[in-house]
């Protein structure tokens, strides 16, 4: 239960899709002019993430990972199909989006109208594919956690687009320097909000000792240690998980 709560808050605030890893920026910038449309898109993203991440978790666990095919029989245990994950994940997402669109149109025309054109657009929203890829690279353990991760990442994205839309509605009445109007000021505000969201980083680390210890391991693991957000995530992960990654690193090297 505790890990569910931790993952939930981590995905919303610390690893926020927009402010920490910049996913779904295209639609974030394009559709955030009005709060009402932002809410529609945000709701659609929550919904699709919560459906596709657990689905892709199943695919990853029972089809793609090394040894995932062992349920077919012992002779399949050596297969590692993880290089196919991009194409399978995106196919799942595109199909699910299409299916969801059909189902929603049939059973709830009012919801369908409010989501409007956003649903088909979502298939190419990086936040959706990013959710599945992060789910894979962070080695999320159970189906429940995968669902939790999809849902909470979606909520984080929803919060981000809602707040920027609210700010943009207000900023229309401000005297922004002409060259910065529109896109430029939105970028800078998002940057400032991102800095604000960095302050959530200390929320769940549980003491500095553990963090420092983990950081040393991280530096060994990624020599090019500039990738701030990645190392920040890994600081809080426990060491055993990092060890596992090193093992897989060695495997791939072979």
């Amino acid at each position: 239960m505790l890990e569910h709560i931790e993952l939930f808050f981590r995905s919303i605030f610390i690893d926020n899709m927009v402010f920490a890893v910049f996913l779904g920026m295209c639609s974030y910038l394009a559709v955030s002019k009005k709060v009402a449309t932002a809410v529609g898109l945000g709701a659609a993203v929550i919904f699709v993430l919560a459906v596709t991440v657990p689905l892709n978790w199943l695919l990853d666990r029972y089809l793609l990972q090394e040894g995932a095919l062992s349920w077919l029989g012992p002779e399949y245990a050596d297969y590692n199909l993880s290089f196919l994950s991009f194409i399978l994940f995106i196919a799942t997402i595109a199909t699910m989006v299409q299916l969801v669109e059909i189902v929603v149109e049939k059973f709830s025309p009012s919801l369908y109208n409010s989501l409007g054109i956003f649903l088909p657009l979502i298939a190419v929203n990086c936040a959706i594919l990013g959710g599945s890829l992060f789910m894979q690279s962070r080695q999320i353990e159970t189906f429940g956690l995968a669902f939790n991760y999809g849902l909470s990442s979606g909520i984080g994205w929803f919060l981000a687009i809602l707040s920027i839309a609210a700010i943009r509605e207000k900023i229309r009445y401000s005297n922004v320097p002409a060259p910065l109007r529109g896109l430029g000021i939105t970028f800078i505000i998002t940057g400032l909000m991102g800095i604000g969201f960095q302050s959530f980083g200390g929320m769940l680390t549980g003491g500095d000792d553990a963090a420092e210890e983990a950081q040393e391991t991280v530096i060994i693991e990624t020599p090019v240690e500039e990738n701030n957000d990645a190392s920040k995530k890994e600081i809080t992960e426990n060491n055993s998980e990092i060890d596992e990654k090193e093992i897989s690193y060695n495997n791939i090297k072979k």
């Binding site: 430029g184 940057g191 991102g194």
Partner: peptide, 20 residues
Amino acid sequence: MIIPPAALIVVGIIIWVQRT
């Protein structure tokens, strides 16, 4: 400059220069 949000601000400045 290393933290992620700095990238947004740098792009914001590029946009500013370009549109000026």
